[in-house]
């Protein structure tokens, strides 16, 4: 039995799991920053405050 498919599958799946775990907070932080900036722009253009 060739071991290569098992080895590469193990590395591939681990890479996907760790990559997603690493990228997801970065994506969420950038989305959060964008939302916060939009909120700040609305605040500047209209009445009321965020704080």
């Amino acid at each position: 039995m060739s071991h290569a498919p098992f080895i590469w599958s193990a590395y591939g799946i681990t890479a996907i799991i760790l990559l997603w775990t690493a990228i997801s907070p970065v994506l969420r932080l950038s989305r959060f920053k964008r939302d916060l900036r939009q909120l700040a722009d609305q605040e500047q253009s209209g009445p009321g405050t965020i704080t």
């Binding site: 098992f6 080895i7 193990a10 681990t14 799991i17 760790l18 997603w20 775990t21």
Partner: peptide
């Protein structure tokens, strides 16, 4: 949780051969 999942999956793929 990600490391645990990786350990379980890589362990299963080592266990088969």
């Amino acid at each position: 949780a990600a490391f645990t999942l990786a350990a379980l999956i890589s362990g299963a793929l080592w266990g088969r051969p």
